[in-house]
């Protein structure tokens, strides 16, 4: 956002404010949705409808770091499955789950636009490319 700041935006700021909550709390808590509904004068179900539509927003708590491994065809062809298995082994969780210590949530993503450097993943906002099972251990160590 540039000059205005997102709090001055009306309805058009809803997604930005949901994203703000997402990065602050790691998810969009119900209290935040209730506040947004009140300040925008829309019913909470409408806020929920928006929040639940987008895959980078979560209405349930996620771990401190969110791993999104691309599972679309270009990454799949380059062995994304072995990378997925390496993460599963390293963290002891399956896609869709969060580690008990809350350090990582693990998700599979649709094409993230890094197909020339496949297989690829995002951890939070960082792109990691040309992944191999061996690289996974090192990369995950960077996130506390």
């Amino acid at each position: 956002m540039s000059e205005k700041g997102i709090s001055t935006l009306g309805r058009e700021g809803l997604i930005l404010r949901l994203k703000e909550a997402q990065s602050k709390f790691g998810y969009v808590p119900q209290e935040v949705m209730a506040e947004l509904a009140q300040s925008l004068e829309i019913p909470i179900n409408e806020v929920y409808g928006v929040a639940s539509f987008y895959s980078f927003l979560s209405t349930r708590p996620l771990g401190r770091n969110v791993i999104r491994i691309c599972r679309s065809l270009p990454c799949y062809l380059k062995g994304a499955q072995t990378v997925i298995e390496a993460v599963e082994k390293e963290l002891g969780i399956k896609p869709g789950e969060t580690t008990p210590d809350g350090r990582f949530s693990f998700q599979l993503a649709n094409c993230i636009g890094l197909c020339d450097q496949a297989p690829a993943m995002l951890i939070n906002q960082d792109a990691h490319v040309e992944l191999t099972p061996e690289k996974i251990t090192q990369i995950l160590r960077m996130y506390k």
Partner: peptide, 18 residues
């Protein structure tokens, strides 16, 4: 409205509240 469409695709659902 009291109801909104939530989620997307085949998982879409008309929800009440959250």
């Amino acid at each position: 409205s009291m109801f909104s469409v939530a989620y997307r695709g085949f998982e879409s659902k008309v929800v009440f509240g959250c």
